[in-house]
Design a binder for these strands. Sequence first.
DNA 1: GTATATTCGGATCGGCGATCCGGAAAAACG
DNA 2: CGTTTTTCCGGATCGCCGATCCGAATATAC
Lengths: 197, 197
Amino acid sequence: MRADARANHVRLLVVAGAVITEQGVDASMRDIARQAGVGLATLLRHFPTREALLEALLRTSFDELTARAAEVETSSLPQDALMLWLRDFVACTTNYRGVATSMMRAIEDPQSALHTSCVTMRAAGTRLLTRAQAADVARTDLDGADLFALASSLAWLGDMPGLEARAEHLFGVVMSAILTNADSSDTEEERRPRARS
Amino acid sequence: MRADARANHVRLLVVAGAVITEQGVDASMRDIARQAGVGLATLLRHFPTREALLEALLRTSFDELTARAAEVETSSLPQDALMLWLRDFVACTTNYRGVATSMMRAIEDPQSALHTSCVTMRAAGTRLLTRAQAADVARTDLDGADLFALASSLAWLGDMPGLEARAEHLFGVVMSAILTNADSSDTEEERRPRARS
DNA sequence: GTATATTCGGATCGGCGATCCGGAAAAACG
DNA sequence: CGTTTTTCCGGATCGCCGATCCGAATATAC
């Protein structure tokens, strides 16, 4: 790859990250190119589709999430590991508004540039879920796809206007449906009623 | 209103319903106008924004839902009423793909043509929730906005590709978080593990 | 320094929603 | 009826979008 091309590549990634952070995943590709000081054709040459660009933006975060899954799997109790990782997953996928919808579409479309990344994430979550189920602290009528769907729906809720404040609470509500608090552990706080404003 | 204008109005509603049913709420306004055999300007004169068109399409269903809320409130146990009505709500809002997102945006935007309808729906759900909470069968750390958000997220899940089959199951999972099955009633079936394919 | 291969970006295309306005047609009136 | 008035229609146009083409610019190889 030529030097100027490589420079444009990283420049586009940085600018796209900034623009999409504040405008969401449906930001205008032209805008991104303009703010990066290149032509639209150049952006589209480096990232042929919007999903390819998103995939490049998410790869770093996703790799960190995968590492985090392995980490909590050995360092925490099954129920805590699942909850901690899901919290990270939701937080990560809430950085870019609208990304939950893109991911749910991509995971069903092998052609999507995001497909592999999403499948990897789902697999990481599935491992934590299976471990929790084996420890009898998670309901057994869920599989990895269910978990991915529920987590994605929480991410979707998180970037609805006016719901930012409720997102954490609703996370706890859904978690209470996933975990089967067989014994009262320190994750019990998630069920405690919250003072509402 | 002139006779030809009224005819176009109903014609546009019928065609828009068909087109949006199969293409989702982001269907091209031009397409709808074309299929109705009128100019784009005519469609936009009758429904100045996409949300105004959606509001007109949803009004009938929403009125039925409001009536249904009053019906189950008097005919069913608090927990059953809440569950039955939420099921209807989700089914109704899943008819048009993408409508959940439109509703969540509209309910925070008083300018939206959909705003009033959404607020009405939320109020209907809130009444059923409050009744269930008073009967001690629903968790008390939820308010109407939480319920609306959870129901909308279920509707959102329902129109993700590949999740149609799981939607009902996930509905049960989330319901199990909302209801507090104090005594084992006949709604208990929702918690029974499901055989997965 | 020249030749080659790669990359760039302006230009163009079809499609979108928004808007304008001249003409068509319904309605009101005599 | 015919005429006038009011309403409504829809083609045309605008700026924006993403996709694509291709001559110009330039980094790299020799």
